[in-house]
Design a protein around this nucleic acid. Structure first.
Length: 254
DNA sequence: AATGTAGTCAACCGCTGGCGG
DNA sequence: TCCGCCAGCGGTTGACTACAT
């Protein structure tokens, strides 16, 4: 399936950019007299130094009779939003339901106005679902922060027992080696006292050594990798560089 | 008044699928 | 069935304008 050779490959001097009134006049006159059976040959026949594609676009979007210009009415906007929720970015399909409006115009209107309008109304312009409220967003952020703390802990616990503390001034704690054993219980306590979103908690976390089963999706206990103090955490937990995290031990312990 | 920034929209680019030889 | 041509489509660009600093 070969790609159509663009005008630039056949003619090097085709004009681009905005159309002049004179070009418009030539195009209108030609189409009214001969129709537009072949856009490819039209420019030459009409005496236009333009690409056939460019002529088709100009005709379809601006010169064709019956085109409605100007502000979209509330009713039109409602229709576009509704059709978009059903059809997605099928601008040509959507335009077929709005007489006089071109796909290009609808697409531009969507991208520049309607998307923002929907966002302001708390509606996701892609899925058309209600966006999470500010309060929900806050809770999600808290959960994300908790999760990140847990990740840090798990990362540390999956390395040898003794690890250096973060260098000053990240930590306000005496910067010597500490035993990570007590962190085990701290981690479990965190998991119990900080219930996570079901989506987050269904994440395949390599933690299930004791009674923290609430972290593991129901019926999925068997395959869950048990975190060993000497083992290396599974894929989602790898690649976390503690040095890049913004949490200090002080933060975690507090 | 000059400059920077954001918004708008006409036009272009490149891909896709239909069609005919 | 394969291949090339073509129109149509959706995403992107860039010129222009309005508004803010």
């Amino acid at each position: 399936m070969g790609r159509s050779p663009c005008c630039k490959e056949t003619k090097t001097d085709v004009k681009k950019g905005p159309w002049t009134p004179e070009e418009d006049r030539k195009l209108i006159e030609y189409v009214q007299l001969h129709g537009h059976r072949s856009w490819r040959s039209l420019p030459e026949n009409a005496g236009l130094n333009r690409c056939g594609k460019s002529c088709r676009l100009r005709w379809n979007n601006y010169l064709r009779p019956g085109i409605k210009r100007g502000q979209f009415s509330d009713e039109e906007e409602r229709q576009i939003v509704h059709l978009h929720s059903l059809l997605g970015n099928k601008w040509s399909k959507i335009s077929s339901f709005l007489p006089g409006r071109t796909d290009n115009e609808i697409k531009n209107h969507w991208n520049t106005r309607l998307k923002k309008k929907l966002l302001r109304m708390g509606i996701d312009p892609v899925t058309h679902d209600q966006l999470p409220s500010l309060a929900n967003l806050n809770a999600l952020l808290m959960q994300a922060a908790n999760l990140q703390m847990l990740q840090n802990l798990v990362q540390l616990m999956s390395t040898p027992n003794k690890v250096p503390l973060l260098p000053e001034p990240c930590s306000g704690i005496n910067p010597h080696l500490i035993d990570l054993l007590p962190l085990n219980s701290l981690l479990e306590e965190l998991l119990v006292t900080s219930p996570l979103d079901p989506i987050v908690s269904s994440y395949d976390m390599p933690i299930s050594c004791s009674d923290t089963h609430q972290m593991v999706p129901e019926g999925n206990l068997e395959g869950t990798e048990c975190l060993q103090r000497d083992s290396v955490a599974a894929a989602p937990w790898q690649g976390l560089n503690l040095a890049e995290q913004e949490f200090s031990w002080k933060d975690i312990l507090e």
